[in-house]
């Protein structure tokens, strides 16, 4: 008898914990979703008294907002490609080649996280003024690269490391050139790690607000930057509509990459050797 009670209790605690988990993590998001579709939601009401799509038409007809969406996606794509191009060689070198000061180079990427971001952006802004990069596309891409360097190097590096050397060696034995081995054996096998890092890079660029705000104003207003002004100037319904639009690509990309985005390939990147 007591055993059944205990199981019941365990199930009950599990349920309560799950309930708290969902409320805490998704309550605020659900609230935004409701707000986005509400027409009228006066104070003491627990749910909106009227549903409407008014703010959706407003947001979707606003040219500045639409162009900010395109701009954000364009920047995120370019940042991801550039960051792949400059970081993958380094990731491979860290995983496979022994060279002097390897550890120093590897750990130096921690610097991007150690210095407070706001301080870094301010300092970069000073540098960009001297180089005439303020309010330019290049300037924004560069500032977005800062946040991606570490992930793009560490995570793929761990992925390369987990490819068995014996497979590369056997390909070499049958006469494949080193470049061919890399392209046909190593790279495909490290793909999950590289995809995770790319998704992460893409999303972090899509969501970057502080640096873009500092460097890109007034001509380059990405989605998160527009979000700042919407929070300040419009009622919370408009902000919510825009929040939903801004969050949608994130959720879609996560669902699409679900197969790859597991704890494993991500976390491996932080076990440095």
């Amino acid at each position: 008898m007591w055993f059944i009670k205990l199981i019941g209790k365990l199930k009950f605690t599990g349920f309560v914990c799950f309930f708290i988990f969902v409320i805490f993590f998704f309550g605020p998001l659900l609230n935004l979703l409701l707000l986005a579709f509400s027409g009228e939601w006066q104070y003491p009401d627990r749910l909106p008294s009227e549903w409407s799509l008014t703010w959706w038409t407003f947001v979707l007809q606003n040219d500045a907002i639409i162009s900010s969406i395109w701009l954000s996606f364009l920047i995120a794509t370019i940042v991801t490609l550039i960051s792949l191009l400059i970081c993958i060689p380094a990731a491979y070198a860290f995983a496979r080649i022994q060279f002097p000061l390897r550890r120093f180079f590897l750990f130096s990427f921690l610097l991007t996280n150690a210095f407070p971001k706001m301080g870094l952006y301010v300092s970069i802004a000073v540098l960009f003024y001297q180089l005439n990069l303020m309010n330019t596309f290049v300037g924004i891409v560069l500032i977005h690269l800062i946040n991606t360097l570490m992930y793009m190097t560490w995570i793929p590096s761990a992925a390369f490391e987990n490819v068995h050397r014996s497979q590369e060696e056997s390909a070499r034995d049958v006469g494949a050139s080193p470049l061919k081995v890399f392209w046909h054996i190593t790279l495909p096998m490290a793909k999950p790690g590289i995809i995770v890092a790319s998704v992460f890079t893409f999303l972090s660029s899509l969501n970057e607000a502080e640096g873009t705000f500092l460097v890109g104003i007034p001509d380059y207003r990405t989605m998160p930057v527009i979000m700042y002004s919407i929070i300040a100037d419009y009622p919370s319904t408009a902000g919510s509509v825009f929040s939903v639009i801004l969050t949608l690509p994130t959720i879609l990309l996560l669902v699409a990459a679900r197969k790859f985005v597991g704890a494993e390939s991500f976390a491996n990147g932080f076990k440095l050797k």
Partner: peptide
């Protein structure tokens, strides 16, 4: 050759780090 290759492969991202992070940090 391996050593040179290793450092060569690391350079693109390390130089980016140097210009975009290390230099501004030093300026700060």
């Amino acid at each position: 050759k391996g050593k040179v290759l290793g450092i060569g492969l690391v350079m693109p991202s390390f130089l980016t780090l140097l210009v975009l992070v290390a230099y501004p940090v030093m300026m700060s």
